[in-house]
Amino acid sequence: MRAFDYASPPTADLALKALAGGTDTVVMAGGTDLMNRMKDDVTSPGRVVHIAGIKTLAGIDAETIGAATTLATLVASKVIKDKYPALWQAASEVGAVQLRNMATVGGNLLQRPRCWYYRTGNGLLAMKDGKSLVRAGDNRYHSIFMTEGDALFVAPSSLAVALIALGAKATILGADGKERTVAIEELYSIPKAEGESELTVGKGEILTKVILPKTVGKSASYEAREKESYDWPLAIASAHVVLEGGKVKVARIVLGSVAPIPFRSEAAEASLIGKALTPETATAAAAAAVKSAKPLSGNAYKVKLAEVAVKRALLAAVGQIYWEV
């Protein structure tokens, strides 16, 4: 870790000023990702603006979740658990208890990829001499969708997957002090060149809150991972369905840890419209979801995991859990 300036402003306005005043500034909320990147010399900011002390950014108020709300607080919310189970399930499996006590909703959405090439100092796209280290190397945890380009890391946020499925929005406080609200999926874009970020929230800006829709259908998330304790998803899916007369009227199906951005599967959604949600239709939707998968040399197994995650998220949403003994 290198020396840096540190500010811990009490208000969002002061935070904007602190961000504007330094060079190469970064926002820190829980610090569970940033601090590790700083220790590993992956990120070496000139100034860290710590926003955990800004009271207006924390807490849950009806459908609005402050960006500095900890995941522990989110998981403790009965409203979230009952009304937005996809979000609750995704949040409850993040890291471990100690992490959820520190990590925040905003930080989870804006954490950087866990790609081991990126984390060992090879850059986000991990290109060397014009060739992808990921393609030539160990890509067991990398993308299986959108693999035509150079960005082969996976978007790490579990919350983003659930929030996109639920149709949530995010509010960003711009450097000019003005707020703007965007769909969660708009927080992400695929970098085309080294130096570009996969996050659209700009320097000097602060993600302030997440807004969930007032009315939602049934939802669930399913995560496949290696360990039960602290670990990352190998694949995660969130499903959100609105049923009418026993038939699917609206479906939103999103996959995580499988592409450089949260991956919404319109093919899977389309396959369900107008049909009852049954093991058969869920299986067909899951197959449709992975039809466009193009795995790398060492991660074909993730196609199976993505498929199963979609099927199980859909069936969990309607209470048809068949895989627990």
């Binding site: 081991w116 090439y117 060992t120 060397k128 060739k131 280290l133 030539a136 190397g137 160990d138």
Partner: peptide
Amino acid sequence: VMDPTTGQML
């Protein structure tokens, strides 16, 4: 896990 190209432990 070792990376064949860079020779680093990943």
